[in-house]
Design a binder for these strands. Sequence first.
DNA 1: GCAAAAGTGTTGGGCATACACCCATGA
DNA 2: TCATGGGTGTATGCCCAACACTTTTGC
Lengths: 241, 241
Amino acid sequence: MTPNDTYTRLANNHISVDCVVMGWDGERLSVLLVSRHGEGEEYSDMKLPGSLIYQDEDLDQAAARVLKELTGLENAGLRQYKAYGSKNRTKDPRDVIWLERAQKIHVERIVTIAYIAFVKLDRSVTGCLDGYNALWRPVDEVGPLAFDHNLILSEALGQMRTMASADPALLFDLLPRKFTLAQMRTLFETVYDRKVDVRNFHKKVGAMTYVVPLDEYQQGVAHRAARFYKFDRKAYNRQRR
Amino acid sequence: MTPNDTYTRLANNHISVDCVVMGWDGERLSVLLVSRHGEGEEYSDMKLPGSLIYQDEDLDQAAARVLKELTGLENAGLRQYKAYGSKNRTKDPRDVIWLERAQKIHVERIVTIAYIAFVKLDRSVTGCLDGYNALWRPVDEVGPLAFDHNLILSEALGQMRTMASADPALLFDLLPRKFTLAQMRTLFETVYDRKVDVRNFHKKVGAMTYVVPLDEYQQGVAHRAARFYKFDRKAYNRQRR
DNA sequence: GCAAAAGTGTTGGGCATACACCCATGA
DNA sequence: TCATGGGTGTATGCCCAACACTTTTGC
């Protein structure tokens, strides 16, 4: 192989970031999707929020930009977890046509770097989505997505478990600032996909100095009111140095 | 922002793969490096083996190609672990000049996808390196590398621990086909950077049905000969399904 | 008073840790 | 016989899993 061969065989590549943004509504995990409209032929489907990267930004910056435009969040703990570069990922002509129209680029290949983030589903986040055709969709109700975004999403769910085992603080990003132990337990059960014993759970949380009980209780519930707790990140960092 | 702005602000990107190939000589971890020679000014330094990707190959294929050309290995369990795309990674003029000469491309940005692999240091691997200016270097003796390859390498060491905790079989890729428990223990001590109690270790390995004792012992050593063991991958996969 | 979810302790088994001496071999 | 590293068993504490009843509240 001569150098010239090398030159001509190099792909005309583009690089993008895609964000898997997870939210938790107290019952289920949801993911943030944006809708995409084809022009000529009539169709409309969903994809993960993402963007090609600009010249003056790092990968992490590009991902942060996407998330900020969509949700307004600035420090959402975005973490890169995998690059997707199969040459098959742009094999659907719809995807290529859409890209070339929307981005005005000639597409041979797009390698995308996938990021994952966990956010609280409060009004500030759920509010400003309309302008972007964005919505939250429970992960078990996500239909076919553009490109290989279904693959990216399903691998993100595995990543979530891996990351959460390595750093349990991540899951508190999904919970409201004040939460009950039942909420916390349900979240754990969803993420790890197994039942958690109530008493053992209370015992374990009791030992976590960074989960602090508040003098505040649920109101207006038709049963004994649950106590609220909060996550103390400073204490957490001190403990796990 | 108009579509035209978007167009002009997109980077002229290139995508590469870099491989952190780890080997174990019984005492220390080594990493496979290739040397690089600058032309005009005189210098010679080292870098991780890597390559730009070609049009007709996936990321994984590109990484496999690099590894195969260098070592002849085909199924070395290469795993992607991170993408590096900081705009600063090509800030050293030497790196840019070298790239443009060697690859005949105009370089604005290179995003690289880092892979890690664990291989046995037997003759077949250590043999065929000469033609490529490649060598094994103990990880704690690695000097300054090109680009951000020192960063990539140091993050690979962390990844190794994470991956090995999730899937202990990885470490057997580093050991010879027949190994003593002392070798295995030393490897664990290196990877996890802590002392392991000899008796507890024997007990634990005894419980691993997939580490099978052979009727073979060391010869010619100036002390009691150690028994050899082998790793039974089938049994391992059966157990950890 | 009843339905619905919150909260609370004890026990047993398994697993990791700590620890010291004898064995086989070549020089 | 000595120096070197190989191989072996027991006792302890900790963490995890299993398990059922009482409390509070709104209706």
